[in-house]
Computed example of a mutant assay.
Amino acid sequence: MRADISDQFFGELLQALGLDPAALPGWWQGWPPGQHVQRWRDALGLTEAEIVAIAQATRQDHPEPPDGPKALDRAMQRAAQRKADNASRKRRRGKPGSVLAPAATPSADVPAFYAAWMNSDSHLPACAISSSMRNAMLSRGLVTPDRMRERGVL
């Protein structure tokens, strides 16, 4: 697993979201939000600069800061998908007649994203995994029933 995010980067993210580090809402306090942001970088393949830019862009559509990092998951997943699509287009350029299969991206494989979280030892809130997500992970063999029981999901 990659290194934890730095306090400087987390501070830049909070600033981009318009949050006051001296008076953070509960969802942004402690280590869980940092690990959540780290997953955007590690699982979705976004750089720290991209994460900050996406956070700033979300404020144009939503004037109020998000309640927590989970509120930004969709925006981060869409950005990772766009990044993968652009990389795929660049690889295809200059190759007439070649048709590539769409690139498999972490953002397109949501069950794998949650399975990685489930299989890690990081904090997992009881409400983080829905029953349909649980079933998808089990059917694909991404997580064992024993591990789900250990984590309180099954």
Rank of each mutant, 00 (worst) to 15 (best):
M137E: 07
R140Q: 15
D109F: 12
Q81D: 00
A84H: 06
G141P: 08
A112F: 05
R92P: 00
P96A: 13
P63V: 12
S107N: 09
L72V: 07
M137P: 04
M118P: 00
R134L: 14
R59G: 14
I51Y: 00
A43Q: 09
Q8N: 13
A53D: 01
L19N: 01
A112L: 10
F113W: 05
T105A: 15
G94F: 10
N119M: 11
R39M: 12
A23P: 01
N119S: 11
T105Q: 06
E150D: 10
D7Q: 14
E12G: 03
F113L: 15
V153H: 01
G30D: 00
W31C: 08
I51C: 10
P25I: 05
P65K: 07
P21G: 10
K83V: 03
E150P: 09
A128H: 07
G68I: 05
L44S: 13
R151C: 00
A16D: 03
R149F: 11
P125D: 07
W117M: 14
A55I: 13
W28I: 05
W27A: 15
V37Q: 06
Y114W: 08
K95R: 15
D109S: 06
P33S: 05
A23C: 02
S122A: 12
E48H: 06
L19I: 09
A87H: 03
H62I: 03
A112K: 04
G141V: 11
A101Y: 13
A80N: 04
C127T: 14
Q8C: 04
L13D: 04
P96T: 14
R41P: 09
N86A: 15
A128L: 13
E50N: 04
K95T: 11
R82L: 08
A23I: 04
P21V: 14
Q77F: 10
S88H: 06
Q8P: 05
W27F: 07
S130P: 02
R41E: 09
W117F: 14
S120F: 13
N86M: 15
Q35L: 12
S98I: 15
M76A: 13
L14E: 01
V153W: 02
A3C: 02
S120Q: 06
A43C: 12
Q15P: 00
A75M: 02
V99D: 02
F113K: 00
P66T: 00
K83D: 09
A126F: 08
P145Y: 08
Q15I: 07
R41I: 11
A126H: 11
G94N: 05
L44H: 05
